[in-house]
Design a protein around this nucleic acid. Sequence first.
DNA 1: GATGAATGAGGGTTCATTCAT
DNA 2: TATGAATGAACCCTCATTCAT
Lengths: 205, 205, 205, 205
Amino acid sequence: MSRVDLAEKRDEILQTIRDAAIAEFAAHGFSGASTQGIAARAAITKNRLHYYITSKDDLYADALRYIVALWDEMFHGIDMTQGPEPFLREYISRKLHHVLAHPEIARMFTAEIMRGAPVLQGLWQPAREATLRAAQVVEGWVEAGLIRPIDPILLQMHIWALTQHHALHSVETVFMLGLSNEAELDPDRLTEEIVALVLNGLRPQ
Amino acid sequence: MSRVDLAEKRDEILQTIRDAAIAEFAAHGFSGASTQGIAARAAITKNRLHYYITSKDDLYADALRYIVALWDEMFHGIDMTQGPEPFLREYISRKLHHVLAHPEIARMFTAEIMRGAPVLQGLWQPAREATLRAAQVVEGWVEAGLIRPIDPILLQMHIWALTQHHALHSVETVFMLGLSNEAELDPDRLTEEIVALVLNGLRPQ
Amino acid sequence: MSRVDLAEKRDEILQTIRDAAIAEFAAHGFSGASTQGIAARAAITKNRLHYYITSKDDLYADALRYIVALWDEMFHGIDMTQGPEPFLREYISRKLHHVLAHPEIARMFTAEIMRGAPVLQGLWQPAREATLRAAQVVEGWVEAGLIRPIDPILLQMHIWALTQHHALHSVETVFMLGLSNEAELDPDRLTEEIVALVLNGLRPQ
Amino acid sequence: MSRVDLAEKRDEILQTIRDAAIAEFAAHGFSGASTQGIAARAAITKNRLHYYITSKDDLYADALRYIVALWDEMFHGIDMTQGPEPFLREYISRKLHHVLAHPEIARMFTAEIMRGAPVLQGLWQPAREATLRAAQVVEGWVEAGLIRPIDPILLQMHIWALTQHHALHSVETVFMLGLSNEAELDPDRLTEEIVALVLNGLRPQ
DNA sequence: GATGAATGAGGGTTCATTCAT
DNA sequence: TATGAATGAACCCTCATTCAT
């Protein structure tokens, strides 16, 4: 095999491992996840897994970094200059589509926060800055009378909560709606419901 | 010690153990939690812990049953006959106060759902029935023109999402708001924000 | 079993484990020693061993502390006021008898020093002070004309070398002398040889 | 590259590997040494190391053979016909200079003996014969009245002990003398001390 | 000649649990 | 009621080595 092919194959297996790791960490948390379980999800032996990773800790941190970068990229380039409606519609739609397609990603993220975010703490300063920048735009909307006065940071948290929820609790939603499995959760329908709730919730009185 | 005192003392220690277990399961999930860790949180030895419990699995299931009962009780007796506003205000307030006072309870619950709810599945049929009953009331409000048309089950999920979030992601909220610790999260203020968002979000157009 | 008996039994097994550990560490060094090997020497299972110790590192450090204390005690109370001859005779005799009876102790000690004494370094300040005190006595002998001028610290190192050697290299000595096993190494005869060499070596000219 | 150059390069790397191996075996013993560690000391990859060696066992045995040959060569050609003084001076000086320049060699040798000399046992018959030949010369000196009666084999052991010690325990000597590092151990000064001790120790009375 | 991939064995340690008293 | 002892399984990881290019 040529050097390029080898590198490609290596990247491929590393990707497989990361996906498997995210799924395992999402289901069992950091300490509950086993490298055995990750290997099984990646369909390789535990020995082979340990050939490719340096440690469980590193694999975990790498996966978290990957998730943070992914979400950074997911929201990249949404236009906030056209006012609240198109922005919120686009933002919520993107988040919901992503979260329903890859619920494990959201779950691992929340599991890390639930245990106190020991690893994430070193990674989310940029997220805070983005949140503060978005808050300023929201405050502009308030001043322009486009939406009613509101805490611009809590608003973001709440949108996050509404969308994240459908990844974390999808089995519950499926059960309550009487569906047969998660695949039946329609991201477009959920987007409509949440956009309507939030947009109406922000209407100036 | 009299027989009664002994029974009291036993109940006391069992309560301590359950609290410790919930905290440990919340932080590390089922497989990540260790009986050692639970014993440490309860300030007893591992040997003593195993004297009082039958197994880790049972302790886990007991704790979940306790949580389900707790939430059932928490929402007991809220008056739905006075229309949406007083109901939502009371419901959201109760949930938020409870969740900020005992975030571990919410976290353990979500952790169980995130791993597929293997234990909870056998316990939440009553919750579904309550949800369906509440949905009928909500539909009555819609028909009476008190609120705009909306999916009454998703509405409940979303209220749940908004409140639950502040238990799951409190360290994130604290970080984003620039607070110094979770104790500074004010349940009344959060109640106001969420009630306002939901009530406005439901206003008939 | 009464509490006292239990404590006794515990001390007994801890002693057995320490002896086994010293033998294993002596033969294979710290990293080469295996808890499996230690357990085998102590005639217990690896699981049982790990019930009694906290870690390999701690067991190693404990064993070293034990050795240091043992040697401190071994030389306790030798009279240096009667001049060089009785002192050297007593000192060398004690060291040789001990070292031939427990060569593993000397070997573990030397193995630790050979790898740079990472653990011992924190323990031998008292030994240095004792060495300096002894050096002053030796200098008194020189001034009194009892022995020829000599470096009093190197003298102690060399006596240490001569005696320690018979623990470290006993299999070589046995081979060179054509003996059949270590038991045939006679501590009294070795004492005579070494005392004669050193005493003559110190004679004033 | 020509065939000769290739062979040279191969010898070079084999030498590097052997040096690295001796250092690793000296510090950690046979079982404690890792091929990873040896590769690191030789500044090559573990894969490359295993390309050049057949096994850890063989590498170990080769290194020991090399050491035995080295010491054989080290003492080659010392004149024993001029009586004890020039011989002892030369012998001790050579040994000390070598041992302080390459303490790892002495350490690996002693570590092998300390674990029972399983490999060395097959290699040191020649050393025994040399020892016996030297013993005869010493006995000649005794008969000629040049030195006092003494066990000629133990004498050799003791000289060995005195010199070997400064390789094995150099960190201890450095500590006791209050030096800052091993480089400050002066082989000429140590030679003087030891030669004086031994020569005086052998003086006829 | 050299290097990435892979693997079975074993390393130290923690796990939930049972036993004995 | 309570606690020390003990154990088999599993934990993460490193080991020396072999295979395939």
